[in-house]
Design a protein around this nucleic acid. Structure first.
Lengths: 193, 193
DNA sequence: CCTACCGATCGGTAGG
DNA sequence: CCTACCGATCGGTAGG
């Protein structure tokens, strides 16, 4: 009390993000989490139905953030290259603004159970297909070379989604700058030949 | 029997790689492993001192493979760009030839305990610093633009080390071709401006 | 390589 | 949100 009064549920999620990020979802027990929150283990179950419920909350919140930045840019009337540049930059910003949660998102979504796992994969594929469409538009309009779209998409996500692994250690670079340099790197790499 | 007689120890490692890759190290129990091998859980301990011993074996074997390809290329008398190109290609080959083990290497090294964890990190830093030196050589000799070496190195490893996540699903591309296209992508991306 | 077993810890529930 | 507790499972050991 006296601090900003985040709800207990929010507090649990924030601490869970931190612990899952540090030790991994599978290696973090509900007892670890309860201790850090300062309540009894059983009390966690009045806020979440299960341990997986917490993971679900984290993963789908981050997925939601990615779509929130993707859709308005994708629907805007700019050319494909500019779209990609903006999406890459905003994508990085989501990661950097949610370092703990995005680490959990990338590392621990595999621990989601069916049917949640399938829902998650569908969202992921949707986002991926969105990027592929923009690449296709770029090729069609001759703004991009005739690249291998699947392969290029993999490379793009590898580059973007590695950010959480190193950003905190070299945090002197601003998210905007990382996003821009990453965009340059990728777009330059793509237009090879 | 009747098949190629790999030693039991080798067989345990191979099955462990597969299970750790599928479910993660922390979520795979010694009982899971024993069952798949076809022996009693306690019997695993006549081959390995602990569960972590198996992880150690996998992680350091892969680390060794990376150094085996790195060092001869690094010591060879070719220019920095050519060195990078060859290292990237061989790096990809190591990943692709050891898909299970390299997935464990990338995802589960965090579960190593001290002092093994520190030994592992030292190897990782050594490899990373090797790449940084080559980039520096390339800049000094004006074959590369005056890029940010730390940032570039992060991007390189993000791109290279994401390969294990998608390769098996699009396995129609040969390791050599992946390596070459990845090299082109990275080297083209690097020389921006 | 097995039988038999240990203490510790796990996610989760009942009931208040 | 707590006390009290459940059955299951964990990594690992003793002794052969």
């Amino acid at each position: 009390m006296g601090e900003l009064a985040a709800s207990r549920k929010t507090q649990i999620i924030e601490i869970a993000q931190k612990l899952f990020q540090e030790k991994g979802y599978a290696s973090t027990s509900m007892r670890d989490l309860a201790k850090e929150v300062g309540i009894e283990p059983a009390s966690l179950y009045s806020h979440f139905e299960s341990k997986e419920g917490i993971l679900k909350n984290i993963c789908f919140r981050i997925a939601g953030e990615f779509f929130e930045i993707f859709e308005p840019i994708n629907n805007s009337m700019v050319n494909p290259i500019e779209k990609l540049k903006r999406i890459f930059t905003e994508h990085i910003r989501v990661i950097v603004n949610n370092l703990d949660a995005s680490t959990v998102f990338f590392n621990d979504w595999v621990h989601l159970q069916e049917p949640t796992l399938s829902e998650f994969k569908i969202l992921r594929d949707k986002y991926e297909n969105g990027i592929k469409s923009i690449l296709q538009d770029g090729i069609t309009s001759c703004e991009l070379e005739n690249i291998d779209i699947d392969f290029t998409t993999r490379l793009i996500f590898s580059a973007l989604n590695g950010t959480h692994e190193w950003y905190s250690k070299e945090g002197r670079v601003s998210p905007e700058e990382v996003g821009e340099r990453m965009s340059d790197f990728i777009l330059n790499g793509i237009s090879f030949k």
